[in-house]
């Protein structure tokens, strides 16, 4: 079935509509996504090789990349740890209100980022509910990279939970029982038997949360304070260059960022193949 007929572009089928639907798909995809993205790369290329690197290697741009990468990484790590705990609790234990808890995990996908941004800022500002408490301990969250990280934890939260949940659900009880019978403690069973089985899904969720965090804009700009070299993220720098009518400069930074995103997309696709090869669905 899977092998294509010799020389043919597609396998024969009695169903109609292939040409029409493929035509709509390719036209729409090209107009909305591919041509505009090509225009972006062409605009960056318009700067020439030297101009491009001169634009991208400025200290302010490099600092923004450093801040974006570091905060996204820390946020994805926090989400990997706590997302695993949440997925574990939702799959393995019963407690009142479990369905509600399960439903609310998707809140970051549904809540507009600007709303999340002002809510988190209100919460963590020095006069906010949590910010006030932390301020008395001498910890400043809003308008620092810690604030950025908190916003990124929020928007990346569902990825690890939703990737790990189904794999944990399908995990065969026999392996775990065998480990237990053979004398392994629960912790040893978890580390040696369960963790290796869910690792591909965990890494995929981690990479997805990281990728999403890297490009995030709306929830971050309110809480970040946006100080150049300190708490300015890459997407904001693109907007600033655009507002200064530096189209080439904006395109250069955006192209650089697109390169990082596509590399991550490739990693995620490879990880997902690994998940599928392990769990055969």
């Amino acid at each position: 079935m899977a092998a294509a007929t010799a020389g043919g572009l597609r396998q024969p089928s009695v169903l109609p509509g292939f040409g029409l639907t493929l035509g709509i798909t390719l036209t729409y995809l090209s107009l909305i996504v591919l041509v505009p993205l090509a225009a972006l790369v062409a605009s960056a290329a318009g700067l020439g090789w030297d101009g491009f690197w001169k634009s991208v290697l400025q200290p302010r741009v490099l600092a923004a990349f450093q801040i974006s990468l570091a905060t996204a990484l820390v946020a994805a790590l926090v989400n990997a740890v706590f997302g695993l705990v949440v997925a574990w609790v939702l799959v393995r234990y019963d407690f009142p209100g479990k369905k509600l808890v399960d439903a609310i995990v998707d809140l970051p996908f549904a809540l507009p980022t600007a709303v999340a941004g002002i809510a988190l800022t209100g919460l963590y500002a020095p006069n906010g509910w949590v910010g006030g408490m932390l301020a008395s301990l001498g910890i400043k969250v809003a308008f620092t990279p810690i604030g950025i990280t908190i916003a990124l934890i929020f928007i990346g939260l569902p990825f690890v939970v939703r990737m790990v949940e189904p794999v944990l659900q399908d995990f065969e009880a026999e392996q775990e029982e065998a480990a237990g019978m053979l004398g392994a403690g629960r912790l040893a069973t978890f580390v040696r038997v369960i963790l290796p089985a869910i690792l591909p899904a965990l890494l995929t969720g981690f990479a997805m949360a990281f990728a999403r965090a890297l490009g995030e804009y709306g929830s971050v700009i309110f809480i970040a304070g946006n100080l150049p070299m300190v708490s300015e993220i890459v997407p904001l720098l693109i907007v600033i260059r655009l507002e200064q009518y530096d189209y080439g400069g904006a395109a250069a930074v955006a192209t650089m960022m697109l390169g990082v995103s596509f590399a991550l997309l490739l990693v995620i696709n490879l990880l997902q193949q690994w998940v599928r090869s392990r769990h055969g669905s």
Binding site: L26, V33, L40
Partner: peptide, 26 residues
């Protein structure tokens, strides 16, 4: 349908999810 380039097409359809919203506007 089964046709050549199908998996590439599927990947391209998902592409906007990996692009920063700011770049989507830019």
């Amino acid at each position: 349908f089964e046709f050549r380039g199908k998996s590439l097409l599927t990947t391209l359809i998902d592409l906007p999810f990996s692009v920063s919203p700011v770049i989507a506007g830019l």
